[in-house]
Design a protein around this nucleic acid. Structure first.
Lengths: 341, 341
DNA sequence: GAAAGTAGCTTAATCGATTTATTTTTATAT
DNA sequence: ATATAAAAATAAATCGATTAAGCTACTTTC
């Protein structure tokens, strides 16, 4: 049983493929095709289970009904859950997702964008690394909708969905200060991505307000966790008088907990911890770790909504929708959060 | 600047598009095209950055260079890391990944398979739910390679990559017995998927060997974690004399830990725990939780290797490669694993 | 020096849809 | 009965590649 084409349908019913095409695309009324014929065709198509070849369709129409999703790392729970939610919404709207991990690697990301272009992806959802401004600019110039999330490219005027990073770490740090902690460090990945800069700034702002000296440690992003844990271990060995730390991402936070476990540093007795991004590891740590929870559902929801809007408004120069969402400081810990010396 | 097509290239160079196509596909020698022309074309193509339209190419050749990856839930760390590794290998071999989550929903999975077919995916990687035997059979009949992982469909003769589930839980349970635990439960998702049946069986076998009575609790898979935690809480409240439990998956295990936290049950003092699938939550729990670590790298490696082999051997009826990998029981816990009453 | 061979390209069909332009058929008006 | 408009359906071009088959012009071969 070979796959059916529109010609087969047309031949079988002794009509032209044009007619079949019109009917299948709901343009029967518009093209005033007789109701009886419409019914005959619809019925037969249903009966034999004919599905148009989407490649041919895409070639002709230029639309592929595919969305390209580029995250930093699909195996990171934060990105995985957002991907999951976006996937659901996209499928429901007839779009498929082509996804990939950028590893925050500029060159890799550029290649992936080309790959997506090549595949005639209709829209792009990107958690962008630095250095891809020109490529994104080009996409926009060519009328392809792009929505960024988690961070954005300041030099590129496009839609994005983010959380209020600066306020989040500011607030978290202030929380620590109010609990009486005095030597608070900030540990994060070395990066000049917008969200990272904002997170560091929030921390610094809070410290400045209380006239404390900031201690910022940046570790280099690496697939191999050991390469993250080593420098971090050295850092905590060196700064022995720290009594609290804010971690810039869930991954850094998780590595941090591993370091503390290895060094025998008790959380929160010896070291209060707040990490960006909430997830099971922090919830189940004992005692559980305070975390800045990002509203993943809302992020995913906004991202896909904005993108679908752009896709439907077909080239209409919709004004940029930049959505900034609030995070939620999940305060946890046996000592109800206040310092006990 | 409109996108270039092969015709534009041909016109510009005053040659036929056939020639350009042959050169671009490395068939210049075979089609004895002059070396100078080959160079001229190659150079020009490079210069203007022409990339063939892959849709047109796929339409003509029938190959899309895409692999469909269907996992249970992309936001589950086990599947996310495998997806990540497969993605890497696939991209390196010129294949893109279309992925989706099945939620173990038969109907949804059938629809997704159709979606993939429609997209002319070249090969399928599936962690199959039950009930899709016919659909997979059809794929195979149509010459489309399918590799399954994590579990398989006993009635369908296709390649799969799995771990030795039965031995894994048997071994884990025996470990608990050797430590002196006497009332060991097995908690898992209700499912008759091969891997789940094997896991329960391994547990039962070990208990039988020592003449203990098995206590198996099955909870229903649900997106909403509360629906898992509730019945599990009831279960542990009811069976108060349990001193150890084996969890069938990382997700059940994580929920279990949440239940114990809520009920004030200390692990491992009041309840020894071993969970299938190792990940950060178990490593960082204090004291860390013993887990059955699956070799995700090896799984991903084998899956993609088998699939690529099939894709390249072009319809050749390669014999089924079924790979069964060993798991690794990561023994952890402050009391070095033995029971202290 | 005519037949055969070959190097080097090109013509045209094809994949399976969409869509523009056109034709045929039927109904209505004059 | 004929012109005219409306309704219904179709032919053919197109999207951008691949590829089987064909065409020159030049070189061999006997």
């Amino acid at each position: 049983m070979k796959k059916l084409s529109i010609v087969d349908i047309a031949n079988e019913l002794k009509v032209s493929k044009t007619t079949v095409s019109f009917i299948l695309n709901g343009r029967a009324k518009e093209k005033r095709i007789g109701e009886d014929l419409v019914e005959r065709v619809t019925k037969y198509v249903e009966e034999v289970g004919y599905k148009p070849n989407s490649l041919a369709k895409s070639l002709r129409t230029g639309k592929s009904n595919t969305i390209g999703l580029m995250v930093e790392d699909i195996s990171n729970p934060f990105f995985a859950s957002i991907a999951r939610l976006i996937e659901d919404r996209a499928y429901k709207n007839g779009y498929k997702i082509l996804y990939c991990s950028t590893d925050n690697d500029t060159q890799k990301t550029k290649e992936l964008i080309n790959m997506f272009r090549d595949r005639h992806v209709d829209g792009y959802i990107i958690a962008p690394p630095e250095g891809i401004e020109d490529d994104v600019e080009q996409l926009l110039k060519d009328g392809l909708p792009v929505v960024m999330f988690d961070r954005h490219l300041p030099k590129v005027n496009t839609d994005y969905v983010e959380v209020d990073n600066l306020f989040s770490t500011y607030n978290a740090t202030r929380h620590l200060i109010q609990q009486g902690y005095k030597n608070i460090a900030f540990v994060t990945f070395a990066s000049s991505q917008t969200q990272m800069l904002a997170r560091v700034q929030g921390y610094k702002d809070a410290l400045k307000e209380s006239r404390f000296t900031p201690v910022v440690k940046e570790v280099v992003f690496n697939q191999d966790e050991e390469m993250i844990i080593k420098p971090m271990t050295a850092f905590f060995k060196k700064y022995k008088d720290l009594d609290a730390v804010v971690f810039g991402t869930n991954h850094v936070g998780t590595c941090g907990l591993k370091v503390f476990n290895a060094l025998g540093i008790k959380v929160p007795e010896n070291m209060a911890v707040i990490s960006f991004d909430d997830y099971d590891v922090f919830k189940l740590y004992s005692p559980p770790v305070t975390a800045i929870a990002q509203p993943v559902d809302e992020i995913a929801d906004n991202v896909i909504t904005v993108l679908l809007k752009k896709l439907n408004s077909k080239g209409g120069s919709t004004a940029s929708h930049s959505v900034i969402l609030k995070t939620n400081l999940q305060i946890r810990g046996s000592s109800s959060g206040s310092k006990v010396d």
